[in-house]
Design a protein around this nucleic acid. Structure first.
Lengths: 343, 343
DNA sequence: GATAAATCTTATCGCGCGTAAAATTATAAT
DNA sequence: ATTATAATTTTACGCGCGATAAGATTTATC
């Protein structure tokens, strides 16, 4: 960092000994200038730590390097993790990601999409709220901005969808539970916000029938994103009223299972696979906290890494090809059984 | 929404029947134009849903309405919650918050501060990484941009600090534990990233001595932000080697306690305050998951709400007064004892 | 070494808005 | 009604960069 303060690209071009448009080209894509030129610019860059004004940059550019990342609920470590993962990939690809959380509110989700429009993003990675999302608003947005949906599908919307094969999750864990003990019943929220919950229920039923068992679905009251609380309250109620026809409980997701484990503890119900245990409990997602529950939670791990990698890749393919012909593409990743002590 | 598409402020000024700079003033502050003018603009606004281009807006403005929110680790629901809280308050105050997470990396923290500079923010709310933060970089940033530090203090840096009274936390819980059973030992990481951890340890020691007990601090290996894992591994090791001189364990924070509870379960150690229990365990923070652990975790609740409210308020005071005379101001909020079953 | 291709420089315009200064209008005071 | 004064609007210019065109220069090809 030496003496003179650089105020704009003009001045920076001067000290680096090339013309302003060339500097502009360099910042747009360093490989678009000759190696010798690049070196001169980079040498100057080390002396003067100049950065182009992002507002001026974006003002006149058709396509910015901004990307939006929208998740439904950032206080859920699952989404925090996947957002972090995606964020990093975007940065590595030379984009500027901005992170948003809908906080479970459809109004806020629409609001975010609106302010996102103002950012003229090259593309958006959107994990919609799901059932409660304003379909029209999301659809309109996707028509304007290349958008890859992830985690939660809204049929027929967006350039592509990347997520998990939820029915497969249920098949996998039902098969495991059935093989190692009593077949499970299915514990879920009555009005799940997320469409994946429905797919998991259907997957459960299908898997049970395939194995010749009678499916039993237990739906508990509760709306919103306080899954643990819902799982706990619903669990206590279900245990008290003896609604389980089996000693094995498959929860729709890990957060619900965490709440359910809390209910079990509260009721003095011992969870685990030892002979002195009353219940086996399993979840789905491999939530970051699941390995620390008591007992540690048996679950199906989402392939975070593949989902985020693929979502980003599909988005940039779409953006950079300009074509929207990914339309309707749908990528689903399988889950992996994580055996812990709870089941 | 009627016919003509509005492309810029010029065109919007035309349809609303006032000059463009007046429209500009209106968007800067609706009360800065005459009521009659305001009505004409707002009438046009309902017809044409025009929004000023944010890039053009910010390019030439000395002070934007942007604020940055930086937390050390967004995958920690505690920070996710407080970030959400702060975000909302900023929006309500008419600002545009942007959320960043350092993900535990000092390099990324500096990188964020740099890109934040490019956003010309009116102010920044920064929860620094703490011990590992690049003090020089943070200091330099704070000199340029009005910055309120929260959660984690870096001495002498920033326009103000808002956080929790950590020694008081420890006093409160030590007093409670001592009053209801054996006085606690203190369970912590050897190299805590966060300065609050040190204040809690000192608070613990002070409280113990005041009550006439011999403090015992157990520091376990581990660095970074995987607190649960560190608490679990360290807990298993400590239990195996019988390092506790008391049946009551006070953890430096809740996430560590969650890991420790997992260790207890793993080792067959029964936690709680009943007579048949082996250990009592308490945490500090009232982490969102603490009420769902088995047993539910007794802890000290941080006053999230007051911290975020005050941090935002102090920042906007600083920004809007223009003066930096909040310098060194320090606001600490007390914690509240949350009694649950673990202690 | 001549020719073509790639790259760079010069020149100029426009983006959409902020902002200071000038001109106008409304309000108050005489 | 007239003038002083404040409030508001208009005029005029600039911000920092993207985009493009035409000409100058360098590099690659044979």
């Amino acid at each position: 960092m030496s003496g003179r303060k650089i105020r704009n690209m003009e001045e920076f071009a001067e000290v680096s000994g090339v013309s302003r448009p060339t500097v502009s080209k360099y910042f747009h894509d360093p490989n678009s200038v000759r190696a010798s030129t690049r070196q001169r610019i980079e040498a100057a860059l080390e002396q003067h730590d100049y950065r182009p004004n992002i507002f001026a940059m974006n003002q006149n550019r058709k396509l910015t390097k901004n990307v939006g990342i929208v998740v439904p609920y950032l206080a859920d470590p699952f989404f925090a993790e996947i957002a972090r993962n995606i964020e990093e990939r975007c940065i590595d690809a030379g984009y500027s990601p901005t992170l948003f959380s809908s906080h479970g509110s459809p109004e806020l989700e629409v609001e975010i999409l609106n302010s996102l429009r103002a950012l003229k993003p090259a593309g958006v990675l959107l994990a919609p709220l799901g059932r409660v999302s304003d379909r029209g608003a999301v659809e309109a947005f996707c028509a304007d901005v290349p958008t890859v949906l992830f985690d939660s599908l809204i049929e027929g919307v967006g350039a592509a969808f990347v997520g998990s094969d939820n029915p497969q999750f249920s098949h996998l864990i039902v098969e495991y539970l059935g093989r190692t003990g009593e077949p499970p019943c299915f514990f879920e929220m009555k009005k799940p916000a997320n469409p994946n919950a429905n797919k998991r229920r259907l997957g459960y039923i299908e898997a049970m029938e395939k194995m010749g068992h009678e499916p039993q679905v237990i739906s508990v009251d509760g709306e919103g994103w306080a899954f643990e609380e819902i799982g706990r309250a619903g669990g206590i109620e279900a245990i008290q009223s003896g609604r389980f026809s089996t000693n094995t409980i498959l929860c729709s997701n890990d957060r619900l299972a965490i709440g359910f484990l809390s209910a079990c503890y509260h009721m003095g119900v011992k969870v685990g696979r030892d002979s002195d245990c009353d219940l086996r409990v399993a979840g789905q997602d491999d939530h970051p906290f699941s390995r620390f529950t008591c007992p540690p939670l048996t679950t199906i791990a989402q392939d975070y890494d593949s989902v985020s990698r693929r979502a980003v890749q599909v988005l940039f393919d779409t953006v950079e090809s300009g074509t929207q012909d990914h339309s309707g593409e749908m990528v689903l990743f399988e889950g992996k059984l994580i055996m812990r002590e709870s089941a």
